[in-house]
Design a protein around this nucleic acid. Structure first.
Lengths: 197, 197
DNA sequence: GGATTTTTGTAGTGAGCGATACAAAAAATG
DNA sequence: CATTTTTTGTATCGCTCACTACAAAAATCC
C-alpha cells in the first residue's frame, strides 16, 4: 500500500527483520524490565551487532518505545469493549479485571503489564516517560469509557480501576497465579454491586 | 543496654552517625529507587568517602537492607491494629487504606511504599530480594490479622488487600494526590459492604 | 562496469558503576 | 611514648554500560 515494502531500497539489504526484532525486544523488556536488559542482551537475542542495531532503531530507548506501542496494539486490553454500557457496571468491571488477570499471566516469564511496570521507571527517565505516556492514554480511555455510561464520578472510578489494574499487575509480578489474580479482580468488582455510584 | 555505645571502641572514632546515615539513605532510596541512587549519590549525601561507606555498611545492598528495616519500623503500617476485630471489616479496611493513602503521600518527593516499589526490582536481584522478604512478611501479617477475625477466605482476602495497597502505592508514585488515593481506598473497601464473605 | 548507497562486522570509545589499595590520621592500650 | 586498632582521604581498580568510527560487503542506479 504505502512504502513499507515496495520500491526496493538502494543499498545493501538488511539481514534481519526489524518488526520481528521489535517483537523479540518486547519480550525481553517484558521479562526483565527496561534497565535489566542491556544492549548486549538485545543484540545477542537479535543476532546482530551494535551498528546494525543503531542504524535500525536509533537507540535503546527508541526501540523500547516501539516495543511499548507494539505491546499496546497486540496485547493491550480493549477497554471500550470490556466496559460496554450493555452490561451492568460491576459485571463489566469483573470482565475487565478477569481479562487483565489472564493477560498478565499469559507468559509465565513475562508477567504483569509492560506499560504499568515500565511507567514505574528505574534509571532511565526517557524510557519511563514513554511508558507513562501510554499509561496516561489508558487512563483517558478508561475514564471516557466510564463517562459514556450513566454513572457520574468517572474520574474517581477511573482512578480506582487503574489502581486495581496496577495492583493485579504487581501481584502477577509477585508470582501469584492466574486464579488468585482472578479472585482479586472479582473481589474488586464487588465494590460496585447494587449499582454503587 | 548491650553494646551499642558503651565501652568505647579502640581505633579512630567514626566521624559520622551511622544510624543517621541510614535515615538519609532511606530517604534517597525512597525518592529515586534503589537503581537510581548511585554510590556517589550516597557518599555525597552522607558527606563521606567510599572507604568509610564500605567500612560502615558493607555494600550498597546491605545499606539498602538496613534502610528497608528502618522504614518498616518507623513508617510501616500497623496491620494488626488497623485490622482489629473490634471494627466491622469494611470499616477496618477503609481505615487501613486511608492510612496507606496518607503514608504514601506524606513526603511528596518520596511517594509510595518503599517495600512495595523495591520488591518490583530492577537491576539488582539481591536488593530486590531484600524488599521481597519484607513484602512477604507483610502478606503474612495481613493474612494472620484477617484470619484472627471471623471471616474465612483469609488468603484470598489478603491477596486482595495487598493488591489494593500495591495499587495505591503505584497511584501515589504516578502523582495522584492524597484525596484521590483516599477515594481509591474507600472504593476498595466497599467490596466488603454488608459483610461480604 | 563504475558510481552510489546502505548495511555489515570488527574493534573500540568515554562515562559511570560498585567496590578497593594504601598510607596517613586519630583514638585507646600498655 | 610506642604499639595497636580503626577510620579517614586520595586515587584509583576492573567492569559494564550505551554508543560509534571505520572500512569492507552487498545491493541498486546509470
Amino acid at each position: 500500500m504505502s512504502d513499507t515494502k515496495n520500491a526496493k531500497p538502494r543499498g545493501r539489504p538488511r539481514a534481519f527483520d526489524a518488526d520481528e526484532a521489535v517483537g523479540k525486544a518486547q519480550a525481553l523488556f517484558h521479562q526483565r524490565g527496561y534497565d535489566a536488559v542491556s544492549l548486549a542482551d538485545l543484540t545477542g537475542a537479535l543476532g546482530i551487532n551494535p551498528p546494525s542495531f543503531y542504524a535500525a532503531f536509533g537507540s535503546k530507548a527508541d526501540l523500547y518505545g516501539r516495543a511499548l506501542e507494539r505491546y499496546a496494539k497486540t496485547e493491550g486490553l480493549d477497554f471500550e469493549r470490556l466496559l460496554t454500557p450493555e452490561k451492568a457496571f460491576d459485571e463489566a468491571l469483573a470482565a475487565l479485571f478477569e481479562a487483565a488477570a489472564v493477560a498478565y499471566t499469559a507468559d509465565p516469564g513475562a508477567t504483569g503489564c509492560l506499560v504499568i511496570e515500565g511507567a514505574r521507571g528505574g534509571t532511565d527517565a526517557i524510557a519511563c516517560d514513554k511508558a507513562k505516556t501510554l499509561w496516561r492514554q489508558s487512563r483517558q480511555r478508561v475514564r471516557d469509557a466510564i463517562a459514556r455510561r450513566e454513572t457520574g464520578h468517572a474520574d474517581e472510578i477511573a482512578d480506582y480501576v487503574l489502581a486495581v489494574l496496577a495492583g493485579i499487575s504487581a501481584s502477577a509480578r509477585d508470582g501469584l497465579d492466574v486464579d488468585r489474580l482472578r479472585a482479586i479482580g472479582r473481589r474488586a468488582s464487588l465494590a460496585f454491586r447494587h449499582d454503587g455510584t
